[in-house]
Design a protein around this nucleic acid. Structure first.
Lengths: 345, 345
DNA sequence: TTTTTTTAGGTAATCGTTATACTATTACCT
DNA sequence: AGGTAATAGTATAACGATTACCTAAAAAAA
């Protein structure tokens, strides 16, 4: 049915070897035959069969993006699709296929990887952090299968990973608040056990430490990643004798709740209380006031992850290099204007 | 390096043909040898090479999900990832790979498809509606390449498509408002040229028509899919002598703006004015009040699209069947309680 | 001019799996 | 018993592209 290399060879009056050499830009073919064969290819509308080629090359030309997707929690991970798109943009450029595999548990992730590696269905794999387990990572390392972990797991010492610098995010949040002249800062975090939350808090505290600033201990609160939790945490803060003049919310939902609590007290943002949060979700700019945010360019992160993976695939004994994506500040209306030199005097 | 069917055959003392038959559950193999060979497979940790198998079968075992992704417009299409996940869940079950291809224009979509079909890199393709052009669809039809279009394009008469029933959504919105006892209904739409908007409006009007209801002409407005546009449209409505007692907002952002305008006038939702909108975005339940919504189960839609595609792949001359996904109502607090029988008396 | 090197191209094996065609054995009927 | 049919298994040719290894001619070097 489809036209093969044999058809081209016959039609052009050369051997299949010659056609193949022309296909792969190999030398020792005269310009004349090269042109002629190419002409025939065009005439016959010949496209080399990718299956056959990959099979011969013992590769699949396929990259897997493996992630845990819990439906209806999309809000908690709206970044995933953007990372995927980022990765896809580089795999496409390098003529690789990017397959999406969604699993619903780390066990399922593990069995998927077993299948992928065993059956050679991919040349490499991008594992979204939430899908990893020690089991899985150990297997990938043992199999010497090219992989990158997006979001650093605590046990992946022999793997490449790429992660967000959450500590730095915390620092930047505090740094910007200071620039704006806020000094009594509160921190509304997620669950105490959550690593991201912990790192952001650490960054916040370390910045304070380094710059000789302090805060009240009861200005630091832990809760859930929900609007309700943000509301109650903020209400509590507002019940104190001394109020904070700015609050770092670890999450957009917490921020939303906090905004409501502040409005309820007839206080104004950013005049009475400044607010800064993390991750630029659509929400951030839609709520009132639009929130100043420390964001991560996750598309870029996907880009980078895929780039390193492809490098690993083409050079299996590349040394382990891991990367950290830097946050950046998006200023909106929940913080007052930074103090100019004049103000500072 | 990797263990092949030959290794298994040698180790088990049978021919490769026998091993292959066992692998594919073919008959005429004694239970004894079957068990023995399976034992050897396990011992050697043998996994059939997918590349080779697919090559022999002249298939790729790969499905493409093709979509236009404009970064930073994710909010306008948060459904895409869910459709993808829905499709993936069925392809996985049927042992197919699902590749994601993101393009940034319909031209790029076309060249991608040319490559995919020509090089046999996929057995079928799911085209997200926004990526289609007449050009592309014609090519797929002419090539007799299995494909499903998600979101019905006006020119795909020879293709399977699967779409949302936007007219029905409009009807359902109105039907529910009537159930709640609202009678003076306004409609805040997107751009007049937008097909989705038009269909929803048509559904709304046709329900009214059928049930002998009417509305003022100036209760129907067209604007942009933004919060600002929603705000100004609603403000205008509220400047009239007779106010609507419910409003259908064609979009979450429009609804957000409208909510603000209503609040500004110190009117209450749902007591003074009821509100209903379309598509259940995270936003819908987060804003105040949480919005009653006519939603589409897009995950299910992805499921269905993939299911039909796989059916097409396995039976190329299946007749063209297209599908419409039905909307469903999610009741929240922006509408008052439906009237019971007693109220109606 | 002869020898060597380079260029141009062909031959045939190969990748791992499957399918077709075959042989050999056993079971089943009259 | 003799013949047919079913069962169990083997040998081998594909699938389409690539490549190592040839050969022959042309070009360069001696």
């Amino acid at each position: 049915m489809a036209v093969t290399i044999k058809d081209v060879a016959r039609e052009a009056g050369v051997s299949v070897a010659t056609v193949s050499k022309i296909l792969n830009n190999k030398p020792y073919i005269s310009e004349k035959t090269r042109q002629h064969v190419k002409e025939v290819m065009k005439q016959l509308d010949y496209h080399p069969n990718a299956q056959a080629s990959n099979f011969k090359y013992k590769r699949s030309n396929n990259i897997i993006f493996l992630a845990i997707t819990q439906l209806h929690t999309a809000f908690h991970n709206p970044h995933m699709f953007e990372i995927l798109c980022g990765a896809e943009s580089v795999t496409k450029k390098k003529k690789y296929n990017l397959s999406f595999v969604g699993v619903s548990s780390t066990e399922e992730a593990y069995t998927s990887v077993l299948e992928i590696v065993g059956r050679n269905t991919a040349d490499g794999i991008l594992v979204h952090g939430s899908a990893t387990s020690r089991h899985l990572v150990d297997f990938l390392v043992k199999s010497n299968f090219p992989h990158i972990i997006i979001g650093r797991p605590p046990f992946a010492s022999a793997s490449c990973w790429i992660d967000i610098n959450n500590r730095m995010s915390g620092q930047m949040a505090m740094e910007y608040l200071e620039t704006c002249g806020y000094s009594k800062i509160a921190f509304l975090g997620g669950p105490k056990s959550d690593e991201i939350s912990r790192h952001r808090l650490q960054g916040f505290l370390s910045y304070m430490n380094i710059n000789g600033l302090t805060t009240q201990e009861d200005f630091i609160k832990y809760g859930e990643y929900t609007k309700e939790s943000g509301f109650t945490m903020m209400e509590e803060l507002l019940s104190y004798g001394t109020l904070p003049d700015a609050v770092i919310c670890e999450n957009n939902l917490i921020a939303m709740g906090a905004v409501k609590a502040i409005e309820n007290k007839n206080l104004s943002i950013p005049k009475d209380i400044g607010m800064i949060t993390f991750d630029d979700y659509p929400l951030s700019q839609l709520i009132d006031p639009p929130l100043t945010v420390i964001d991560i360019d996750v598309y870029e992160m996907g880009n980078q992850a895929a780039t390193i993976l492809l490098r690993k695939i083409n050079n299996k004994n590349l040394s382990v290099q891991s990367f950290v994506t830097l946050p950046n500040l998006i200023v909106r209306s929940s913080t007052r204007n930074p103090r100019t030199k004049k103000d500072a005097l």
